[in-house]
Design a protein around this nucleic acid. Structure first.
Lengths: 216, 216
DNA sequence: TGTACATCAGTGAACGCGCGTTCACTGATGTAC
DNA sequence: TGTACATCAGTGAACGCGCGTTCACTGATGTAC
């Protein structure tokens, strides 16, 4: 078993277990026994549990932001050459392309959304700092391009709505399997991720473009 | 120090610490030393850490759902007597009334939203079961009334959008302090909870009422 | 080609620590007669 | 009114357990001469 094997087996097991139970609730003993490697291997290859958590996110976020950045560049060029902008199309293609970039690397998009939801609410300060330092630029670029597409919305309202949108996206996709199960039971309706993105994109676009109340 | 004192001191300390750090990350030793009571008092009064967590949520959810139910009844009567319905008004008054019900009992609404966010993503199966068993009826009543107000939206789309809305609400209000700090730094804009609810209600309403795409 | 040494992935066992929970006990208050 | 007993909030110390991490060690592979 080569070094790469061991490292990847640990990452694979950690990814699944973290997504299922959370970070604190998953012990290194569970991870290493699932991966079929020695307990000490995590500290040998990654240094600590914290750094293993970061490595799991890195394996998701690097292809994800790479695809996102490429699509943002493509959109920017199209816009420069005068193509008109449909906000829900923009959102949907961003969602799709970014998640497709993950799938290419063999990373399950639903699992990624679950981990993102965990990262958002579990306290893990080191993880937040790691993500902001490593991927903050892509996020700001995405937010900036979206803000440009909404010149009629004042900045403070825009940013609140951006957080509303992120909340709607991460929260609902993070619980995709649970929600899907409920809707299947109650309405016999099967949903897949693409279909849900096709529902989410126009809903998010409607939220971003809603008329700004003058009462505030 | 009477029994009520000890019980309330434990609940007060647990509420603050859970909201700051999460459930697993907060030990009974930290809670009891913050509350100034004996370590064994938690198990004496509540039975276990799990039951303490449930008691913390009960103290929030009981006044919250009581206010919510009252407002839902008031709205139902107004509707029966032919009053016309404005969805963002409905949402905003529901938000306001429910959170005001909390404030009356001395419970901080922002802390409640943080705990709700934690409950949603931390695995804690016992907590989910407890909340559904105890407060599920109020939730279903709220969802049903909202669905009635949106006859043009098919049920499956409605439920996805309801989860989008819950996501936007819980997620952004759960991180209220962090988002507020960012916007204050970047734009010098101070936000309070009422103002944010006044932004959130129309945004959520726009999302719920968006035209249903025929592509799905 | 052969030998000595260095590097490095991996291992088994142990370390110390903090955790939730338990238990025997105390002391104050309430109750019965 | 006084005594015996029961109840119950609270306590201090300990229990066993699982945790992340460390450490001395192994054995295979690579490198220098």
């Amino acid at each position: 078993m080569s070094q790469l094997d061991t490292v990847n087996r640990i990452l694979d097991a950690a990814e699944v277990l973290f997504a299922e139970r959370g970070f604190t609730e998953t012990s290194l003993r569970t991870i290493t026994s699932t991966a079929g490697v020695n307990l000490a291997a995590v500290n040998y290859h990654f240094g600590s549990k914290k750094e293993l958590i970061q490595a799991v996110f890195e394996r998701f976020l690097t292809p994800f932001t790479k695809s996102l950045d490429q699509e943002l560049s493509r959109r920017q060029q199209a816009q420069a050459s005068g193509e008109e902008l449909q906000l829900d199309d923009l959102l949907q293609s961003l969602y799709r392309v970014a998640l497709a970039g993950l799938a290419e690397e063999g990373r399950d998009p639903k699992r990624f959304m679950r981990l993102l939801g965990l990262a958002y609410t579990q306290s893990q300060g080191h993880l937040r700092r790691f993500i902001v330092a490593r991927y903050g630029a892509s996020y700001r670029r995405f937010a900036g391009q979206l803000a440009n597409a909404l010149p009629q919305v004042d900045p403070v309202t825009f940013y609140w709505r951006l957080y509303f949108m992120l909340g709607a996206t991460i929260f609902s996709l993070s619980s995709f399997d649970a929600i899907e199960a409920i809707l299947r039971e109650d309405f016999g309706a099967e949903s897949d991720l693409d279909e849900t993105l096709a529902r989410l994109a126009p809903a998010a676009a409607a939220m971003l473009t809603a008329p700004v109340s003058s009462e505030i």
